[in-house]
Design a protein around this nucleic acid. Structure first.
Lengths: 333, 333
DNA sequence: CTGTTAGCGCGTTCAC
DNA sequence: GTGAACGCGCTAACAG
């Protein structure tokens, strides 16, 4: 007779011998309500015994805001880093009663706006920056917290989480530490990863300036051995020759390793190569790849801390992302 | 005055000069309602002009079921295949007005049940099988469609999507085609991937039986070159020696390639190696890796078709997953 | 003090 | 074509 899953606050109320209002007050610890501990006990006991959990639909309807966090999935291959980030975000948000919903980040903002309108997310998480007009319209839909992971236009760089600057700095620093003066940058050919590639290159360029090195010689390196051979030839033909290369990511680095092997070059003696990501494959190349790892767990926690602060209208925690990024020294550089 | 995003069916109704009921009937194309085309036009025009989209909270409350699809993220490293699948599922579901929500698949079913209770998903998508009791309890919460991607216990194998059997078959077939009679299987050491590894190995074993080959010699191959060296030594010491190895995935295969290189073995002449996944890195190993690719787009579409059929209480489309799996011949086997 | 009543939020659907 | 009730939790106003 009692349909399973149909336990509402009414059921809890009658089981505890109180009204639905009281149930709500107790379960939400509403401040300013003087309800004796004995009653609270009874209500809570009844709630757990019956397995009550409030309907998020009804709650959302009333509150004007859901417990969902909208995560706009960029249109690019999801590597292990982004994948792990997703996993940790999901787990971390769940601990705060928030649920991650994934949606494709389409070109036009419309479909995102419409979804936000429909589900009234507590927060919106994106990789690419959200422009002001869109942000404004979002405010109408429960005023979600908005967090962009990657920096947008330089200058408009509010609190950005994945600065990527440290990544480049660590790459350059390590190459400089191991005696390289002339650096190359292996740029990806997939236009979809531009939002990641641009700030990474910028970080490398900045680090070169800071260390007094020449700016890096940028070559496009598609994920294909023949093309990588061409890039390496160009670097080695330069005067002075490039001896160390910062790669956009580990896959780009692997293309370079394969090409260098083809050319009979020795890594790192003839050419030092350093990647980004610490892809599981990076430990298994020949030679194993030196790379930069982002600790996605720390990173996810940082994102969540920022979101929660915004939701509670508190100042954002001023934590640097440098703790989350670290050099993994293997043998390619 | 008109708060943005606060357009409700009441607004549309008054703009079109009709009642909210009519708005609902028109916008949902409710069958059995005789509403003249002119009125319908007016309602639709008003809706688009005002930018109306219904509140999913209210709709869920009324319908007892939301437009969310719960996706239980298994606790394992998210490789490119699972990542791409996620992307395609998201996009494909969005085209049907469904939204993917991601939740960690925790050990106990409780937290999942509770979430389902709260959000009333239209469907639940899991990798590992859902047991009968859990399935039963779910029925109470709007009776979501349930789809398990991986097979559970053999025997209880209802409609399973990612059978993995074809994967193993393709691996064995190719090795047999290229003259290998004694096969090895490189088994992963990460217990979290067991749900994938078990059916893949089962597929390999079945294929060996079908082709009259000896059962594969299984060696555990951690993602570490030293350990992979040990495995290769064991295979080569066997009589008759193993000449071709099916790997759990591309990373396992890469460990083997690195180990073989260390041992001075030639691939594929001394040892043929075949992976699974077609990880972007697979094309960049030396030699490039022969592997099995799953077309995640086709696969996602298949999942969605099955879900939609279940939602409409129609028989599931009987499509084989073989179309989605394909051999990529490079040079390692 | 302790707790209740009543109405809102918004789309859906039955009965007229 | 419409009025009205419903689904469920929240909370301002109010009573014992």
């Amino acid at each position: 007779m009692t349909e399973p899953g149909r336990i509402t606050s009414t059921d809890v109320a009658s089981a505890a011998g109180v009204s639905r209002a009281t149930v709500s007050y107790v379960l939400n610890d509403t401040p300013g309500q003087k309800i004796p501990e004995t009653t609270r006990q009874r209500v809570r006991e009844a709630a757990t015994r019956l397995g009550y959990s409030p309907s998020s639909a009804a709650r959302t309807l009333r509150r004007g805001r859901s417990d969902l966090v909208l995560y706009l999935l960029p249109d690019l291959p999801i590597g292990p880093t982004v994948g792990d980030l997703l996993g940790h975000l999901t787990t971390g948000l769940a601990q705060h009663g928030l649920t991650l919903v994934v949606h494709p980040a389409s070109r036009d903002a419309e479909s995102m706006i419409e979804l936000a309108r429909a589900i009234r997310p507590a927060a919106v998480l994106t990789f690419t920056a959200v422009d002001e007009p869109t942000r404004d319209r979002l405010r109408g839909f429960g005023d979600p917290a908005v967090l962009s992971l990657l920096p947008g236009d330089p200058g408009n760089s509010r609190e950005t989480v994945l600065s990527q600057g440290n990544t480049g700095r660590l790459q350059v620093q390590h190459l400089a530490d191991t005696g390289h003066q002339q650096l190359g940058y292996a740029w990806p050919d997939d236009p979809r990863v531009l939002p990641f590639a641009r700030p990474r290159l910028a970080g490398v360029q900045q680090a070169c300036r800071d260390l007094g090195l020449d700016p890096p010689s940028v070559q496009e390196v598609p994920l294909d051995v023949a093309a990588a051979v061409t890039a390496i030839r160009a670097w080695r033909a330069a005067t002075p020759a490039i001896t160390g290369v910062c790669c956009y990511n580990d896959e780009t680095a692997m293309a370079l390793i394969a090409a260098a092997t083809h050319l009979g070059l020795r890594i790192p003696d003839d050419l030092a190569i350093i990647g980004v990501d610490d892809n599981p494959a990076a430990a298994l190349t020949v030679p194993p790849l030196t790379t930069i790892r982002t600790d996605t767990r720390i990173f996810a926690e940082l994102c969540i801390a920022i979101l929660l602060a915004q939701l509670n209208r508190q100042p954002p925690p001023r934590i640097l992302d440098s703790t989350a990024v670290r050099l993994i020294i293997r043998q390619s550089a």
